[in-house]
Nucleic acid binder design. Structure first.
Length: 422
RNA sequence: GGAGAGGUGGGUGAGUGGCCUAAACCAGCGGUUUGCUAAACCGCCGUGGCGUUUCAAAGCGCCACCGAGAGUUCGAAUCUCUCCCUCUCCGCCA
């Protein structure tokens, strides 16, 4: 969420940002009204509490001397009732204010292009060429079936649609990619975490999955846990409610986890094969940085993700997302899309975002300046490095042979132990 | 799953209703002293909110916070209830 003080001091900047995201700016005025009410009631109730404290101290002294205190009791009983009523009112106002603040999105960075729909995203860069193929390339779901390396029907039997089973060289290719991504992240200075795959409600709220995206998560109702939709949730919450030291920054973490997404409401062509599944593997990159460096850190985060695609020799393009296509909590975002020749379409494989202090404020992650002084919120960023299924799809389609075999990208040979599938 | 013990500032740890407004020690910061270091001595030493002053910061005043939340009371770290967490023992278990 945004800082109420910032909203109070710059209401026009906030409203303009909210409008750019295509959201309703009236929430901003609601927040300001509630904030004013809050401060008004707060001042009143604190005055009464100061009086109560003063009289209570007097009572203590009088009792010690054996003096009569009945008059004070009578007066204070009324004050106590008044305090209770005002405290209740204050609690209600603060709860309302929090609800409104959580409903106000983060505002876009000035460098983000204005736009309403995905069509207005800007192609920031393209890399590589589609492979020259003198035969009709097949989509990956046909190839993996013939090769017997991913079993969709048995996944349906075991669990349901969208839960593929990786078999033999398919399973090993998956494992090779995970290790490749983690090793590359480590080389780029990220510390590996192997976090829990279930999180509590506080963690899910910290990164913004709750309350807005509750329907997208699998819930373990009996214990009030959520299956993680991305490693971003447990990894970013690693430092929740902690104060770091500026000297520690930037902190770079990475983690492999399976990701679980209900994908409620998405049907049709997009879900063929590995394009959209309920459980998938992903390596996530997360950074905690000093506010003054977060946009430089976003560029290096994007470069870290792009390098993986370059090493895999997969043609891709980088999109700078327009204001209307930014997530609720993001100020700036790049998407990486890889070309899948069998489907003749781009597949999103990474999303690199800056959240500035929006997540940090929700999670209360701060840092002490090296020069001393008050703690300030860190900036958080994250990006996929990378999401596996669509990478597997792209490898299988782009590296296919006329015989329906698949050549393994060179960078993976030391991880797979084989150079061709089929 | 069953039984018991416990959660107090950066750390150790005192505090069972007001007179201690959270003691004391350690660590940390500043100073005095000193050839340098150390020791000794003196002082400072939590977080957040509201207000005040200000270009701003510092300062000052007030409020809240002793695991979290609710309750009793004129007054709660202290008494009651619920929840969370840690430790010990028993049971189960890869």
């Amino acid at each position: 969420m945004l800082d109420i003080k910032f909203i109070r001091e710059h209401p026009d900047i906030v409203k303009e940002g909210v409008r750019k995201k295509g959201e309703d700016p009236s929430k901003v005025d609601e927040a300001l009204t509630l904030d004013e009410q809050r401060r008004h009631v707060l001042q009143h109730v604190e005055q009464l509490k100061a009086k109560r404290n003063a009289v209570s101290a007097e009572v203590g002294k009088k009792k010690a001397k054996g003096e009569d205190t009945a008059a004070s009791f009578e007066e204070m009983r009324k004050v106590a009732d008044e305090i209770k009523a005002l405290d209740n009112e204050l609690a209600r106002i603060e709860a309302d204010l929090l609800t409104v603040l959580l409903a106000i999105p983060n505002i876009p960075h000035p460098s983000v292009p204005l736009g309403r729909t995905p069509a207005e995203n800007v192609v920031h860069a393209t890399w590589g060429e589609a492979p020259v193929i003198d035969f009709e390339p097949k989509p990956h779901w046909e190839l993996v079936e013939k090769l017997g390396i991913i079993d969709f029907p048995r996944g349906v039997k075991i669990t349901g649609a969208g839960f593929p089973v990786y078999v033999g060289k398919g399973a090993k290719l998956e494992r090779a990619l995970i290790n490749f991504f983690l090793d590359e992240a480590e080389a780029a200075g990220y510390t590996e975490l192997l976090p829990p795959h279930l999180v509590n409600a506080a963690s899910a709220t910290g990164t913004g999955q709750l309350p807005d995206k509750e329907d997208q998560m699998y819930v373990v109702a009996k214990d009030d846990f959520y299956l993680i939709p991305t490693a971003e949730v447990p990894v970013t919450n690693f430092y929740r409610d902690e104060t770091l030291h500026e000297k520690q920054l930037p902190i770079k973490l990475c983690a492999y986890t399976p990701c679980f997404r209900r994908e409620a409401g998405s049907y049709g062509k997009d879900v063929r094969g590995l394009n959209r599944v309920h459980q998938f593997d992903k390596v996530e990159l997360v950074k905690f940085v000093h506010p003054s460096t977060s946009y430089d850190e976003l560029e290096s985060l994007r470069a870290d993700a792009e390098r993986l695609l370059q090493k895999l020799q997969l043609p891709y393009r980088t999109l700078l997302m327009c204001t209307g296509d930014l997530g609720f909590t993001q100020t700036k975002k790049y998407d990486l899309e890889v070309w899948a020749i069998g489907q003749k379409r781009w597949l999103e494989v990474s999303s690199c975002s800056n959240f500035e202090s929006y997540q940090a404020r929700r999670m209360n992650i701060r840092f002490k300046p090296a020069t001393g002084g008050k703690a300030d919120m860190v900036h958080t960023l994250n990006g996929s490095g990378l999401a596996l299924p669509r990478i597997v799809a792209a490898i299988i389609e782009n590296y296919q042979t006329p015989e329906g075999k698949v050549v393994v990208p060179k960078a993976l040979h030391r991880y797979t132990g084989f150079e061709i599938i089929g």
